[in-house]
Each structure stands twice: as C-alpha cells, then as structure tokens.
C-alpha cells in the first residue's frame, strides 16, 4: 500500500513537471476544463431565471448538492480519471509493459498521463460548494459541519470505486469506456439535482444497487433537514464511509478478477 502510494507519487510528479513545461497550453486546458464543467451550473442558473424552486429545492440547496458531488467527483477524476483509458491499453497491447514493472498495475494505470488540467473541474465544484455554503440557510450543528468533509471524502472514494470497476469491465469489453462514462459523468450529473425530481425506482436503484446516493443525496438531505423521497431513516446519513469502504473492496475484487482474466494479445 505504502509502496503503491510512493510509486503513484513519483509517476504523477513526473507528469506534472512535464505538463508545466508548456505553461500557456496548460493554462488554456485548465480554463477549458473549468468552463466545460461550469456550463452545467450555468444551465441551472438559466433554469432559475424562470423558476424559484426545482423539485421543491431552492437554488442554494441545489448548489449545495452540485458542489458536494462536483468536488468529490472532481477529486476522483483528477486522481484516477486515467484508469478509464485501460481498454485502450489492452487493445494496443501496451498493458504488457506495465505488467513487467515492480509496481502494482492499478497504480501505474491511475498515474499514467496524469492530467493536471482536471483541476479545473475540481475548482469549479469547490467554487459552487463555497457559494452554496454562503447562501443556504441551515441550522449548523457540529455534526452537520463535520458531515461536509465526510461527504466529500466518502463521495470521492465511492466514485473511485466506480472508476476502478468500470476499468475492470474494460478487461472484458475494451471498447466500452463510454459505459463507464455513463456511471461516472452521468452519475455526477444525476447527483447535481435533488432526488425529489426523479422516479422513486431510480432513486432506489442508486441507493441500493449502485449506491451513488451516498455520495451526497443521503448525507446532504440530513444537512438540509429534508425528507428522503423513498422514506429512508435519517441515520443512514452517517453510513457513507462504510458504503465507500464496501464499494472500494468490491471494486478491488472486480479489478483482480479483470486482471486475472487478461489475455495479452498480439506478439
């Protein structure tokens, strides 16, 4: 574990150094990442130019949902986003070269082509979160205050599990990186909006089957003093760390199974 983190650190450091040699180009891509992400929120602002509430939630409350999932997802995408290129590496055979090095393959895949520009997405998420914290009217208690960083970290871990599981799936289906996008980017988009606007079956699905609801919906509803639309008890708001650990364990198993099923192609 420690070895893996150390290796992750120096591979990432190398990519960052190489990225920063072209400063202008780097600044532009960060701007692009920030803007592309910001459009989602601008669309929400445009909606609120016509309405005062969406699904019973105010702009500030939606900004809170948006900011929490945006920050958690931005963190994961920055740190592990590269794993979604796994199918590509399987297809062109370059995965073999990672397998003969004394560093875990997952670490190498996650650190490969580390894209610092993704910091733009993270910054945008944080930006909206800070805005939300200023405007929402919440009766803050110490528990609620602690809930915010807990959500961000657990949420990032849940998204990490989705990224890794998606990469594991690409051992089997190399061209299916878009399926992964549906769960990662699609999941993030879903969580930007309040659960009250979605069909209850969909909410149940992302609570019990693919537990994305624990990234922000469940704990955020506690912070915002809102009823859970599918009638779940409030204490579930304390579960995200456990859910995150469970998801990561399952994703780890999926990764190992995927790696074991790997049959190198070509000569």
């Amino acid at each position: 574990m420690g070895d893996g983190l150390r290796a992750y650190g120096f591979i990432v450091a190398m990519w960052v150094r190489s990225t920063l040699t072209y400063r202008a180009s780097f600044a532009m891509t960060v701007f692009g990442s920030f803007t592309a992400t910001a459009f989602d929120f601008i669309a929400i602002l445009l909606m609120f130019s016509h309405v005062d509430a969406l699904g019973g939630y105010s702009l500030g409350e939606i900004a809170f949902l948006y900011g929490t999932t945006g920050t958690a997802f931005g963190l994961t995408e920055l740190l592990m986003g590269s794993v979604s290129r796994l199918g590509h590496r399987v297809r062109d055979g370059t995965l073999d070269t990672l397998l003969v090095r004394p560093v875990p393959v997952l670490v190498q895949v996650a650190a490969d082509r580390f894209a610092l520009r993704r910091i733009g997405r993270l910054a945008q998420g944080l930006f909206v979160l800070v805005y939300a914290l200023f405007v929402i009217e919440v009766h803050w208690t110490p528990v609620k205050v602690l809930m915010v960083p807990m959500m961000l970290l657990s949420g990032a871990a849940i998204f990490a599990a989705v990224f890794v599981a998606g990469a594991a799936f690409q051992f089997v289906a190399q061209d299916a990186s878009e399926v992964q996008n549906a769960f990662t980017y699609g999941g993030n988009t879903l969580l930007q909006y309040p659960p009250s606007i979605f069909a209850k079956d969909l909410v149940r699905g992302v609570t019990f089957v693919l537990p994305l609801a624990f990234v922000n919906w469940v704990p955020a509803l506690y912070v915002l003093d809102r009823e859970n639309p599918i009638g779940l008890p409030q204490w579930l708001a304390f579960l995200p760390p456990l859910v995150a650990v469970g998801c990561c364990a399952l994703a780890g198993l999926a990764w190992r199974a995927g790696l074991r099923s790997y049959r190198s192609t070509g000569s």
Partner: peptide
C-alpha cells in the same frame, strides 16, 4: 518487447 516500448512515450 521489440514491437512496443516500455518507455514513456511523451516524456
């Protein structure tokens, strides 16, 4: 590997 490099392509 003769057909693929173990070096980092862009570095």
């Amino acid at each position: 590997f003769g057909q693929r490099t173990t070096l980092w392509w862009d570095l």
